[in-house]
Amino acid sequence: MIKYTAMQNKFSAVSLCALLAIMLIVAPQQGLAQKKKDKKKGRPPAVVELATVIERNISASINLTGAVQALTESVVAAEVNGRVIKFSKKEGDEVKRNETVALLDRTSYRIILRGAKGQLVKAEIALERARLAAKRAKELFEQKIASEEVEQNAELDVKMAEAEIMLRKADLEQAEYNLARCEVRAPYNGFVARKLTDVGNWVNDGDGLFEIIDIHRIEVVVEAPERYLREFSMGREAQVTLDAYPGKTFKGKIAAVSPKADLKSRTFRVKVGMDNPNSAIKAGMLARVTVTTSEQKDVVLIPRDAIVWRARRAMVFTVNEGKAKSAIVTIGRQQGAFVEASGAIKRGMKLIVTGNEILRDGSPVNVVGEKSYK
């Protein structure tokens, strides 16, 4: 019984060894067969999208950033001393030329005016008396009752009285002028940009009351580097864009170029004039000025996404019978989502713009759609 069991164990060990040997022989053959099968099947096609090569007219330009300023801007000051009793306009209000904006207390100036009128009447009476006295002195001189000296003095008194009339008239005009200056008026059509004092404050002659600006026509001020100065000739057209109005472009013209550079920045101040009929553009807004320096027509443009770099060369891929085909291109300036390009490409060609990073010549591709660019 014991002998039988030993023989049985020996047989089992031999069987196990034989099975392992068979597996070692068969497994590599199966793996090799699978590899051959996979190789025969090939890599799955790359999923790609296409875009069209276009032609556009493009231009070279200079772009500078600046700020909007009013063509006319003034601080309106008091011309007489007095207390502010009223502001008829608030900040932001539109005003017309000669419209009253602020009012000073006129009480003392009215009193002075009445006094000036009284002094003039008094001087007129004195003149009339002097004329009568001169007439009487002349008659007495002709009758040889009065001396020539008396007659001459009487005539001088008339001239003195006439001079006094002139002085009193000047005082009256000054009093009328000062009274009128208590009404502070707008010097031109515009907007009240800022109040510089408040009702109840005392102001002296020359103190600022409010700031007024005219933005019906405006200027955009930029600082141009000297290398660009020759491009900023008087009257040349410029395009202006504003962050406040995205997507809109305004037209202007070069209105002024400073003849002197800033010694620190070596830039020249350039002003671009433009109309602002609705006063929609406000002083102080950020603005960007573009001046076109040259223009090219029918330039071939390809999407930036179509370009892949291989060995420091720009390359694009087209699709030919379901497979990728490469072409070397020379690229130029960027134009938004596009790039200027030359080489074996032309308008209307379809280029691969997605999934092109891993492509090689002859790689199978699966086109799933077309991508559009603006």
Rank of each mutant, 00 (worst) to 15 (best):
A6G: 00
A6R: 01
M7V: 08
Q8V: 12
Q8F: 14
K10D: 05
F11S: 02
L20M: 08
A21S: 06
V26W: 13
P28D: 04
G31V: 15
L32F: 09
Q34T: 09
D38V: 04
G42L: 00
V47R: 10
I54P: 04
E55A: 05
E55V: 15
A60C: 03
I62Q: 08
N63Q: 11
T65M: 13
Q69E: 14
V75W: 09
V76P: 06
V76G: 05
V80N: 02
I85N: 03
I85K: 03
K86A: 15
K86P: 08
G92C: 08
V101G: 08
D105N: 10
R110W: 08
L113N: 11
K117Q: 13
G118Y: 14
L120Y: 02
A130V: 12
I145E: 10
A146M: 05
A146Q: 12
E148C: 04
N153G: 12
L167A: 12
R168G: 08
R168Y: 10
D171G: 09
R181H: 08
C182K: 06
E183Q: 14
R185K: 15
P187H: 04
Y188Q: 11
A193Q: 13
A193N: 10
D205V: 05
I215G: 03
I218Q: 09
V220M: 06
V222R: 08
V222N: 08
R230V: 07
G235F: 07
R236Y: 00
R236M: 00
E237R: 14
V240P: 00
F250S: 00
I254V: 14
I254C: 05
K260I: 12
K264Q: 10
V270D: 00
V270L: 03
G273K: 01
P277K: 00
R288Y: 02
T290Q: 10
V291T: 01
V291P: 01
T292V: 09
T292I: 12
T293D: 02
S294G: 02
K297H: 10
D298L: 02
V299Y: 12
A306C: 07
A306Q: 02
A311G: 01
V316W: 05
T318E: 02
E321A: 13
K323I: 07
K325I: 02
I328N: 06
T330C: 04
T330G: 11
Q334P: 06
F338E: 08
V339T: 14
A341P: 05
S342C: 06
K346F: 09
L351F: 13
L351S: 03
I352M: 07
I352L: 12
G355V: 07
L359N: 05
V365R: 04
G369N: 11
E370S: 15
K371G: 03
K371E: 15
Y373A: 00
